[in-house]
Simulated scan of single mutants.
Amino acid sequence: MSDSANFVKVCALDDVPAEGALGVEIDDTPVAIIRVGPDDSPEVFALRDVCSHAEVALSEGEVFDHTIECWLHGSCFDLRTGKSTNPPATQPVPTYRVKVEDGDVFVSLGADD
């Protein structure tokens, strides 16, 4: 792929819990890697691992129905868009491009095209 230099290997797919999240850092940026769906064809998402309301790690929250819930006050964020789906958070969190190759997860912090 021509843009492979923009992607950084962050973990093995098996390191991300099924229907759960893993917190990692890329160049001092906290990133939550989220895995949803069946084991044979999971979807993997990446978003900034900081709630836009209370500045706590989203990767410690619960994942359900393509959202992640902040463990502190219950704000939920859409994994596909980063948009808040309920209060108290009103601001979205950044999302990042993800690709899975040969069992490894790669993330690009560049602008999501």
Rank of each mutant, 00 (worst) to 15 (best):
E62F: 12
V100Q: 01
T90G: 04
W71V: 04
A12G: 14
D27E: 15
T85E: 07
G37N: 03
A54S: 09
E101M: 05
S4F: 08
F7V: 04
D39Q: 13
V16H: 07
A18V: 13
A111P: 15
K83D: 14
S2A: 14
D39C: 08
G23Q: 11
H53M: 01
V105H: 00
A18I: 12
I26S: 08
V16K: 08
V36Q: 05
S52K: 01
M1F: 07
C11Q: 11
H73S: 02
I68Y: 00
E55G: 00
P17I: 09
S2I: 10
S2M: 07
T81P: 01
D40Q: 13
H53N: 07
T85K: 07
V50I: 15
V36I: 15
V50R: 14
T85S: 12
T90V: 11
A32G: 11
D65H: 02
I26H: 05
T67E: 10
K9E: 15
E43H: 07
V44N: 01
T95G: 10
L109H: 05
T29F: 10
V8K: 15
G23I: 10
C11L: 06
V44I: 05
G20L: 03
D39R: 13
S4R: 10
K83Y: 09
M1D: 13
C11D: 08
V16E: 09
E69R: 11
N6R: 15
R48D: 11
D27Q: 12
H73N: 04
R35Y: 01
P30M: 14
G61F: 10
P88N: 03
A12W: 07
I68D: 00
I34D: 01
V24H: 13
L79E: 01
D27W: 09
V98L: 00
D49R: 03
